[in-house]
Amino acid sequence: MPDAPDMQHWPTGRLLATAARMVEHAWHDTLQGVGITHAGLIVLDLLADGPLAQAEIARRARVEVQTMSRTLERLEREGHVERTPDPRDRRSRLVTRTPAGEAAWTRAWSLETSAVPAVDDPDLLRAQLLQIVRALSAERWS
């Protein structure tokens, strides 16, 4: 999409929302080739340090438990995660990344640079995005 002449005058929120949607679409297209969704990639990333309860995954992903349940069902069906009873709490199930999930996660992150365009100062962009996310998270989830 060529630059629309008025984009220079768009409010920052509109630019950020548009950029986020475009990156999400690019990620979606890239991740289709890996066989996972963006939500699935977030779950696989959260499981990098070991098993977590479904409710904890939802909390860390900042989504409702019901939303997380659908994502986990798909990941489990596709062989990327396993859910087992939590030995410390019979009502809870622990979610673990499988070897197939590990491979999908590794492949997805190796493709990030092809899905997200390069910027002049990626470290500065990351720092500014983190600042925005942290500030809004503190307001919403503290």
Rank of each mutant, 00 (worst) to 15 (best):
His38Gly: 05
Ala39Cys: 01
Ile42Gln: 04
Val43His: 01
Val43Phe: 09
Leu47Pro: 05
Leu47Asp: 03
Leu47Phe: 03
Ala48Tyr: 08
Asp49Tyr: 02
Gly50Cys: 00
Pro51Ser: 11
Ala53Cys: 00
Ala53Trp: 03
Gln54Arg: 14
Ala55Met: 04
Ala55Asn: 05
Ala55Val: 13
Ala58Glu: 08
Ala58Tyr: 09
Ala61Glu: 07
Ala61Pro: 07
Arg62Asn: 11
Glu64Ala: 06
Glu64Cys: 02
Val65His: 12
Gln66Pro: 03
Ser69Thr: 15
Arg70Lys: 13
Arg70Tyr: 11
Thr71Val: 15
Leu72Thr: 04
Arg74Lys: 13
Glu76Cys: 07
Glu76Tyr: 06
Arg77Ala: 13
Glu78Arg: 15
Glu78His: 12
Glu78Leu: 15
Gly79Asn: 10
Val81Phe: 09
Glu82Pro: 01
Arg83Ala: 15
Thr84Cys: 03
Pro87Asp: 10
Arg88Ser: 14
Arg90Ser: 14
Arg90Ala: 15
Arg93Cys: 09
Arg93Ser: 15
Val95Ala: 12
Val95Ile: 14
Thr96Glu: 14
Thr96Trp: 12
Thr96Asp: 11
Pro99Asp: 09
Ala100Trp: 06
Glu102Phe: 06
Ala103Pro: 04
Ala103Met: 10
Trp105Pro: 02
Thr106Gln: 14
Arg107Cys: 07
Ala108Thr: 09
Ala108Ile: 11
Ser110Arg: 14
Ser110Tyr: 04
Ser110Cys: 08
Leu111Val: 10
Leu111Ser: 06
Ala115Lys: 07
Pro117Phe: 08
Ala118Leu: 14
Ala118Trp: 12
Pro122Cys: 09
